[in-house]
């Protein structure tokens, strides 16, 4: 299926995508970033703005499962794609194993980086269910945390990986 995006004469654009599994159809200013679209238009405020130059990862969302810095992604780039935000991981009332592992290992302090960390980790564990410490530090290097010193975040990702593997093995 091909999808086309067309800008109107008023500088607005129409976008069709899914957000956390739900279809979204919206007309927005063409220059709207994915971060502003999701935070301001859709009211999902779990993604955070910090560096605004694609360095810190606080605004991370998944597009078809791939992490992107939504501060530097135009909303129309999500046309036809599946957008996953932090709110989508616990949409059914229970925590994703990664979120649970962040809680259990003490990987959360101020929390401003956490939604981005969890989503990047989600993508990492989908690619590599059993990552080494080096795998984690390489994959996660686009997500900054100023509080924790990172050690517990590594623990959290490894714990989540173990639990997810155990669950898969047991089913």
């Amino acid at each position: 299926m091909t999808t086309t995006t067309r800008m109107t004469e008023t500088g607005t654009i129409t976008i069709d995508a899914t957000v956390n599994g739900r279809p979204v159809h919206a007309t927005i200013a063409a220059q709207t970033t994915l971060l502003d679209f999701v935070r301001e238009e859709l009211g999902l405020r779990g993604a955070k703005r910090s560096c605004d130059v694609q360095v810190c990862g606080a605004c991370t969302m998944l597009l078809d499962g791939t992490p992107v810095s939504s501060c530097c992604t135009l909303a129309w780039e999500a046309q036809g794609k599946a957008i996953t935000t932090i709110e989508g991981l616990s949409a059914h009332g229970s925590l994703d194993p990664i979120q649970q592992a962040f809680v259990d290992t003490g990987a959360v302090q101020c929390g401003f980086c956490t939604s981005g960390m969890v989503l990047t980790a989600k993508s990492l564990l989908a690619d590599n269910p059993s990552p080494s410490r080096d795998d984690i530090t390489a994959y996660m290097s686009g997500n900054l945390c100023r509080c924790t010193g990172y050690w517990r975040i590594i623990d959290a990702i490894q714990l989540a990986g173990e639990r997810m593997r155990d669950k898969d093995g047991g089913s």
Partner: peptide, 17 residues
């Protein structure tokens, strides 16, 4: 466990912005 960890892990925590 931190009382705020769960809400921060789910993105529900409300910051000034």
């Amino acid at each position: 466990p931190r009382i705020d960890a769960r809400a921060k892990a789910t993105g529900e925590t409300v910051y000034a912005g």
